[in-house]
């Protein structure tokens, strides 16, 4: 088998293994959550009988190991279980976890995708320009701005943006509530502020890594050779340095994209955006365990998938692996 394909399959297998381990950790963590789930769901006034009935219905009376395997078995079939909120005699209709997570995940991916489409090219561009004009005013300016934005808490950035771009200059709206009936353009307009916040948060990290990865290579003999062949400074960076710098850059990009899906809770709360982060926070406070488990698994899968893609980019950018002797 082609060694590259083999390596990728190995990584994929490893990723699935990691996901399994993570699923166990999620279940363990949930076991350790304090508080009585039934009471949290049913309220303090629930009678012991209702509590017992609820526990039987959702299976809390069985051992954690059995519940784990049941849950995993369901997940493998694409069934993430039912929300506790719909269980018991108090709720009228049943709500599947998958149905709750699905639309929220799509919302999150939409916001993340918009932020990534702006942030990644911007970070690469700024990183390359900073490396090209090292120690110039441009380089220092970009560094200072990115350091400020990376050091500020994201809710702070979010409120500053709201204050200036929604209150003082009412260009955008501060509430990013979207509904299925909105057109793409309307959605883009509504999510402008959260997207800008996210861009500000992740651009710095990626830009700094791009700059560092390129500068790190500028001392290589083949870069000097490029100069002695009369290549222009921009060609040196784009043709001679960047192709060898993809590996570290891809890894940082993957981490930041994962953050866009996994770490956006705060931004979602500030802008009341109906994403998966908010769903998970709500579920934790309501002790809606199947939803928490489902969300956690989606987050883990996101991380693993993005890191896998970064690995593939690393392999594909290394001719030693791609074209063995």
């Amino acid at each position: 088998m082609n060694p590259v394909v083999r390596t990728i399959l190995q990584r994929l297998g490893l990723g699935i293994g990691t996901l399994l381990v993570v699923s166990i950790i999620i279940s363990l963590a949930i076991e350790m959550l304090p508080g009585d789930f039934a009471r949290a769901v049913l309220g303090q006034s629930a009678t012991p009988e209702t509590v017992a009935a609820f526990q039987r219905e959702v299976g809390l009376d069985r051992s954690p190991v059995v519940r784990y395997f049941e849950w995993m078995g369901g997940v493998l079939r694409g069934d993430f279980g039912e929300s506790y909120a719909s269980a018991g005699s108090l709720a009228g209709h049943r709500r599947l976890v998958a149905d709750m997570i699905g639309p929220r995940l799509l919302n999150t991916l939409f916001l993340a995708g918009v932020a990534a489409l702006v942030a990644v090219p911007l970070a690469l561009f700024l990183g390359i320009m900073a490396a090209l004009h090292r120690n110039s005013i441009l380089d220092r300016g970009v560094n200072v701005v990115s350091l400020v934005s990376i050091s500020s808490p994201e809710f702070f950035l979010a409120y500053i943006l709201i204050m200036f771009l929604a209150v003082k200059l009412p260009i955008f709206v501060s509430l990013a509530s979207i509904s299925p009936s909105m057109s793409v353009l309307e959605r883009l307009y509504v999510i402008a502020l959260p997207a800008i916040t996210l861009v500000l948060v992740i651009v710095a990290h990626m830009m700094r890594m791009t700059r560092a990865a390129i500068i790190n290579l500028l001392a290589s003999p083949y870069i000097e050779m490029g100069r002695l062949k009369g290549a222009r400074p921009m060609q040196i960076i784009l043709r001679h340095a960047l192709p060898n710098a993809w590996a570290p850059i891809a890894n940082v990009v993957a981490l930041n994209l994962a953050y866009l899906v996994v770490g956006v809770v705060v931004v979602e709360v500030v802008f009341t955006y109906p994403g998966i982060g908010q769903l998970m926070v709500d579920a934790v406070s309501k002790r809606d365990l199947p939803v928490v488990q489902g969300c956690a698994l989606v987050f883990a899968a996101t991380y693993i998938l993005l890191n896998l893609i970064a690995d593939i980019v690393t392999i594909a950018s290394n001719p030693r692996l791609l074209h063995p002797r």
């Binding site: 003999p221 050779m225 490029g226 062949k229 009369g230 043709r239 192709p243 950018s317």
Partner: peptide
């Protein structure tokens, strides 16, 4: 100066293994 390099004055380095760009 840049225009002269490579076209009218060329350079052959000590370690060709390090002086060829591994990516091309």
């Amino acid at each position: 100066r840049r225009k002269l390099r490579g076209s009218r004055i060329a350079y052959v380095a000590q370690s060709a293994a390090a002086s060829f760009n591994p990516a091309h």
